[in-house]
Amino acid sequence: MDDVVFRVMLRMEITAGMETDFERVWREVGDSVTGHPANLGQWLSRSAEEDGIYYIVSDWVDETTFREFETSDRHLSHRTKLHPYRRGGSMTTMHVVAALTGAAGDRS
């Protein structure tokens, strides 16, 4: 099971009026995550139903490497830059067990 993708999903509650700045800073500091050799990608999504709610999803080659990153100075610096925009949030972790590509994702 070592080849299973480890996925992290953050739900972030952003202070009202700070959404645009949060999105800008997230893009500016994103390479501190995506530049890590074990990171497979990262996505930022804004809720279509709740104001000020964002989801950050990142995929990792395995849980062990993510946990090492999670406690690193690199991650602490990244979190520190995003923290001023946050009023709350939560983290969920999971192992991807299957993936299906939709018809639109199969275009060349």
Rank of each mutant, 00 (worst) to 15 (best):
T80A: 15
G105T: 08
G105Y: 12
R46F: 12
V61D: 08
V61H: 10
H75T: 10
G89D: 06
D2W: 05
M9P: 03
R11C: 08
R27L: 14
M18L: 14
F66D: 00
R87F: 11
R67W: 05
G30A: 12
R74S: 09
V25Y: 04
P37F: 03
A103I: 15
D59S: 06
L44S: 02
W26E: 01
S72E: 03
G41V: 07
T71C: 01
G105I: 11
M1L: 13
A48N: 11
V4Y: 09
G102V: 14
R87N: 14
E49V: 00
V61S: 06
V25Q: 06
M94K: 03
R11P: 02
A38E: 05
K81P: 06
N39W: 04
N39P: 04
E28I: 08
F69I: 01
K81E: 12
R86S: 11
E13A: 08
V8M: 06
T92S: 15
H78C: 00
G41F: 05
G88M: 09
V57Q: 03
L10M: 13
V4I: 09
G41A: 05
R74G: 01
E19S: 05
K81T: 09
A104Q: 15
D2Q: 06
A48C: 10
R7F: 07
V97S: 01
G17K: 05
R24T: 02
F66S: 01
I56A: 09
D51V: 08
F6E: 01
V5C: 11
A99R: 12
L100M: 14
Y85F: 13
V8D: 03
R24K: 12
T93G: 02
H83P: 12
H95D: 11
H78G: 00
E50Q: 15
T20W: 12
G41H: 05
R7W: 09
H83A: 15
Y85V: 03
E68V: 03
I14R: 03
G41I: 10
M12K: 10
N39C: 03
I14A: 00
L82A: 04
S108K: 15
E19Q: 09
D31S: 13
M9L: 10
T93V: 11
T65H: 00
H75Q: 10
S77C: 09
E49I: 00
F22E: 05
E13R: 09
D31G: 12
K81M: 15
R79H: 06
K81C: 07
